[in-house]
Design a protein around this nucleic acid. Structure first.
Lengths: 295, 295
DNA sequence: TTATTTCGATAATATTTTGTTATGAGGTTG
DNA sequence: CAACCTCATAACAAAATATTATCGAAATAA
């Protein structure tokens, strides 16, 4: 490994052209300089200078190492400067959430990135457990989920609420027994479908759906692209449960029919971060936008 | 200064998530890891991890340092690799020579750069003494000059020869005493004018010019752009001495008259490098072109 | 030329830095 | 609650590093 102190000595040596002068400049003794150069040459595996009796000439390798040392110095300075300066309008922000939240949130975040081009938004649509494991690993800074995770590892803050919609094809007659209706249609599966459906059933149609086993429902499709989940339903195939925002943004709404339930089903959204992790200033900028999305 | 060993320890710590495991991986003890991190934090001036009782969370500064450490590692590897590999078709070649040599040589070298785009030719037209001082400083790799420099500091190799031409305006009657002719015309000065003129006089017109003092010649112009030196002469003003190649490439030759001397005046061109400096392989590629320019 | 000074290399020694062992405090697990 | 982890700290041992002393060769001055 190339010790930066040796590199600095080498740079000074090359700049001054004299071992003695370099030593003076560095407040050390001349043999010290000699030793640094020897060690650096050993570490590099190449002679960095060609020694004459009283003078030296830098080798090609020496030139390369000299340039490297200079750039190292600059890089290190830049790093130290960066460490002290927590810019609220620059840096990477990685967040993960469900596809439907992403669908609604990402455009708003992009507006912010347009305002402050040095903020870089990285959005990952993922299922619940992956969001949590990514936050725990630290590969994702923040997540938005619909369940409160383990308080030992995560910090949680309520963001807002979203209405869940049971969506069926527009042609279907909904004035029938709901269990029969859904069994006949079959489920269009997506990453959060079963979770949403169970929330929905827990609050509605208990008498009709009470004994319905979600896992025994026929599955008539699967898609994990949020903007395509409603496609089969608009074509008359299956049903699903989705947040209202996802339904609203669908391009072909006349193909759909949202069943108005007796009790509105609300899921709470939580902003989740790693426990004890202090996020940099740019997340305040970001979270203003996220907060306002549910206001 | 950020010790690369501490940085490596820090990277390992972050990767493993455990002091003990990091220590094992690095064949050291756990307190050693603790100390490395402490020292690194002190050197950075920031906490890199937030310590829990049995675990830690990386801080924003820690993330920056982690990224820096990773890139440092890559850069160092790249350097070491580069040191061992002397590519004949890539790298910078800086050379210095007179304007007239540059005029002739640079196009040929550019052809070579087109063939091998990773070779970067840097050509500096400069007077004799500056060429030598640049080579001695090491800011220029090679020079082409017309005098053998001090053998203590430089290595010299004969490149070829060039004919010198005494150039006067085309309208002038040359069948007169040469001293009178030149005194009446006056010298168009350029960086090598006096040197060339002295070479010329030493071999020709000794009887006529014997007592002519170059420094007392009237100077009627000065220009250090090689392709413009002959401009005043083509306009009927002054005389000068230049290599034949520079005269040949002049755009308005009918305005000029080259005085045919009794003894052709030849200047020898020398390729000069710093003493004891071994040039990298790309200079072999380059010097083939340079050699062939005078063949 | 010879004496003097300058410059870098080397060896021996002193000092500082670094790594290890030993130990303790706090937390988790069975 | 005992056994077991994990990390921090202190004391000490080991290694790395810097200094002093000295030499030889070359440049400079006399």
């Amino acid at each position: 490994m190339l010790n930066p102190i040796w590199l600095k000595t080498f740079v000074t040596l090359v700049d001054t052209g004299h071992f003695t002068q370099a030593a003076e400049k560095l407040f050390m003794t001349q043999p010290g300089v000699s030793q640094h150069i020897n060690k650096l040459e050993k570490a590099c595996g190449h002679l960095l200078i060609t020694r004459g009796k009283k003078s030296f000439v830098i080798t090609e390798q020496g030139r390369l190492v000299y340039r490297y040392a200079k750039s190292l110095e600059r890089n290190e300075e830049a790093l130290i400067e960066q460490l002290a300066f927590d810019d609220p309008y620059s840096g990477e922000c990685t967040l993960a959430c469900s596809g439907s939240v992403a669908l609604m949130l990402y455009p708003k975040l992009l507006e912010e990135q347009v305002k402050h081009p040095n903020i870089i938004i990285k959005m990952k649509a993922a299922p619940y457990h992956q969001i949590l494991s990514d936050i725990k690993k630290g590969t994702v800074d923040q997540g938005i989920v619909t369940d409160i995770p383990n308080k030992i590892y995560f910090e949680t803050k309520v963001l807002g609420e979203e209405e869940l919609c049971l969506v069926v094809p527009s042609r279907v007659d909904t004035n029938v027994n709901k269990a029969t209706l859904l069994m006949n249609l079959g489920l269009i599966l997506h990453p959060d479908a079963k979770h949403y459906l169970s929330l929905f059933i827990a609050k509605n149609y208990k008498t009709e759906l009470g004994q319905l086993n979600i896992n025994s429902l026929p599955v008539v499709g699967f898609i994990n692209q949020i903007n395509q989940i409603l496609e089969p339903i608009a074509n008359g195939i299956g049903f699903t449960v989705l947040p209202k925002s996802a339904v609203d943004s669908f391009h072909n709404k006349q193909g759909l029919q949202v069943i108005k339930p007796d009790n509105t089903v609300i899921e709470t959204l939580y902003l989740v971060t790693q426990k004890n992790r202090v996020l940099p200033a740019r997340f305040e900028t970001l979270n203003k936008v996220i907060d306002s999305a549910w206001k």
